[in-house]
Structures are given as structure tokens and as C-alpha cells.
């Protein structure tokens, strides 16, 4: 059984997910169909492990992604046989299954009604509340999803996953300052998450691009610093360097016109020289990563293909500008 089955499958590439779901029938056959802690065989058969149930859950998600509904249903059945129908997590998983096999909007609406009925009976069912938000998002009812998520976060304000989702929803609606607030809440739970620092940098950059106010330079400086922090926490972080490059490009253009007044409580704008140096570092690092990745260097293979292509594209755009 591959170890990738023990991690949440959200980050799996499509090809790996397909590979896993192709293994599904074999895995399902190899594992016993039911494990009871009260039967005779329990004494000498291998005892059940938490990993087995994680495997079933992740296998089910992979199968749903690739459309193998039969295996997914089998996984769900086995989980239900073990944990019962009224287990909160299983209620959410069953809902997820129904969402996945739903043919049209009417079927999705039915699943949503079911979630609402469950939540009416037991408002503290967190997995189902989260599923409801996800389904609202699927049905493109973003404002409803935001409302639902906000009331969820009022009850559980330390849930980093929910704050991240809320940030995504806000940013998709162009509400950048709310998105920044939500991401800051994530940082308060996980202060060293470099991807969240980079994400904050991205949202600040988007906010800068969307406004043309006087104070927008501050957003840009904040964005630059967030990218710096993400690189400080994680060497060779491609997204961090990419953002640093973009932000420092903009900042080099904006700095000469920027008013040098002392901002209210926030950090002063960085100096032209520092930004220039950072820009150079980002350029050289990005080209190094792209070069070594293409050369097949073993330390540089973990990057996502799309990100490498985007970095190459950014570097090309720059160099063609210089040639002209």
C-alpha cells in the first residue's frame, strides 16, 4: 500500500490520483471487508489500525476524483460498517459522495437540503457545516457560502482551514481587505506557514493592482515584505521568489513618486537600493531554479510544472524587454 494513501489527497496530481484509484479494486480485495473488535478472529488476525481507515477515506476521495464511483461506494460502505451512520465525519463523507454522483443542480439542491436538515437537528456538527459551505461554493452561491463560513468561524475561531477558505472566497469576490484579515487569522494559528505568508503577499499585490489610491504603495511594500518572509522561512521557495520579483518590479516604478510621509503606525517604505538588490536576487534565483530543474538536478525536482513554466515566462518577458 503506497504511503501517498495516508496523506490527504487534495495535493495529489491527477496522474497520481488516477494511479491510486486504479489500484482500488486490488486494495479493497486485499483488506478484510469487516473488522469487529468482538469476534474470535480479532485475537489472532492483525488488529485494525487507524491507517486502514485513513486509507479507505483517501482511496474514496481519489476514486471520486477519477470517476470510479463503484470503488468509492465500497469504501464508504466499509467505513459505515465500522463507524455507524451517525458518525459526524461519515455524514460529511456520505454527503461528499452524493455531491460527486449528483447529475444536475436539482440533485445538488437535494444534498444541500439534507445538510440543512442534519444541521437543524445538530448545529454543532462541524464536518457537515464545512461540507455545506463547500457545496454552496460549488453551486456558485458565494455570498451564502461566505455568510455560512462566517457563522461557522464565530463558533470556532481557531480553525485555520476555514479561515483559508474564507480568504479564498473573499478574494474571489474582490474583497481584498477582508481576505487579508482572514489570512492574518490563519497566520495567528500557524505563524510559520510560508505558503500563507506568500499568499498574503499575493493578496496584497492584487489589492495594490486593484486600487490607485495614495496609500496603495503601502500594500505593495507589505506584499514585498511578505514574500521576503516566506523566502526567509523556506529557502528556494519558487512562489516566494516569483512574487518578490513581481512586487519589486512594481515597487521600483512606484518608489520615485512615493510620498515620503511617515505612515500611520505601519512600516516605512523600503529604500530604492534594497528593492533593486532584492529584484536582482529574485531574478538570479528564479533563473537558477528554472535551469537546474530543466537540467534534472535532483534537489530541484519538487516544483510544480505550471509554476516552473510561469517563472520561465516571467524571465523571458523581462529579458525581451531588455533586448528591445
Amino acid at each position: 500500500m503506497s504511503s501517498s494513501l495516508l496523506h490527504p489527497p487534495a495535493h495529489l496530481s491527477p496522474s497520481v490520483a488516477l494511479q491510486l484509484s486504479q489500484q482500488a479494486p486490488a486494495i479493497l480485495q486485499a483488506t478484510p471487508s469487516s473488522i469487529s473488535s468482538y469476534s474470535l478472529s480479532y485475537l489472532w488476525s492483525a488488529s485494525e489500525t487507524p491507517e486502514l481507515w485513513t486509507t479507505y477515506e483517501n482511496l474514496m476521495l481519489s476514486c471520486l476524483r477519477t470517476g470510479d464511483e463503484e470503488s468509492a461506494h465500497l469504501c464508504l460502505e466499509r467505513l459505515t460498517a465500522r463507524f455507524g451512520t451517525d458518525n459526524e465525519k461519515l455524514m460529511a463523507l456520505r454527503g461528499l459522495f452524493q455531491e460527486a454522483v449528483a447529475q444536475d443542480d436539482a440533485a445538488l439542491k437535494k444534498v444541500l437540503d439534507e445538510y440543512e436538515a442534519i444541521l437543524k437537528r445538530d448545529p454543532s456538527n462541524m464536518p457537515v457545516s464545512k461540507r455545506r459551505v463547500a457545496l454552496l461554493k460549488t453551486m456558485n452561491k458565494i455570498p451564502d457560502a461566505i455568510t455560512a463560513l462566517n457563522s461557522f468561524l464565530d463558533d470556532s475561531p481557531t480553525d485555520a482551514e476555514a479561515w483559508t477558505e474564507l480568504a479564498d472566497l473573499y478574494v474571489s469576490q474582490g474583497m481584498y481587505s477582508q481576505g487579508i484579515f482572514a489570512l492574518e487569522e490563519v497566520l495567528l494559528v500557524t505563524p510559520n506557514a510560508w505558503n500563507i505568508h506568500a499568499k498574503l503577499g499575493e493578496v496584497n499585490y492584487m489589492a495594490f493592482k486593484a486600487t490607485s489610491d495614495q496609500g496603495s504603495d503601502k500594500l505593495l511594500a507589505e506584499s514585498l515584505r511578505r514574500f521576503c518572509r516566506s523566502i526567509e522561512l523556506c529557502d528556494d521557495y519558487l512562489r516566494g521568489y516569483y512574487g518578490l520579483k513581481l512586487a519589486s518590479n512594481e515597487l521600483l516604478l512606484a518608489l520615485p513618486q512615493a510620498s515620503r510621509q511617515k505612515p500611520d503606525g505601519s512600516l516605512p517604505l523600503p529604500s530604492q537600493k534594497t528593492v533593486g538588490l532584492l529584484n536582482q536576487k529574485a531574478t538570479s534565483k528564479l533563473s537558477e531554479i528554472v535551469r537546474l530543474n530543466a537540467a534534472g538536478d535532483r534537489g530541484y525536482q519538487g516544483y510544480e510544472k505550471a509554476e516552473i513554466i510561469a517563472a520561465k515566462e516571467l524571465l523571458n518577458r523581462e529579458s525581451s524587454k531588455v533586448v528591445r
Binding site: S156, E184, L187, L188, G265, L267
Partner: peptide
């Protein structure tokens, strides 16, 4: 969790800006 949020804020305050 509301209490935990305060504790988190106190311990990880350095990650966010003074205004925030």
C-alpha cells in the same frame, strides 16, 4: 476556542502588522 484565539493572538502576534 474564543479563549484559544486570544492565546494564539498573544503568542503569534509578531506575524501580523501593528495595525492588524
Amino acid at each position: 476556542r474564543s479563549l484559544l484565539r486570544g492565546i494564539n493572538l498573544r503568542q503569534n502576534a509578531n506575524a501580523i502588522s501593528p495595525v492588524a
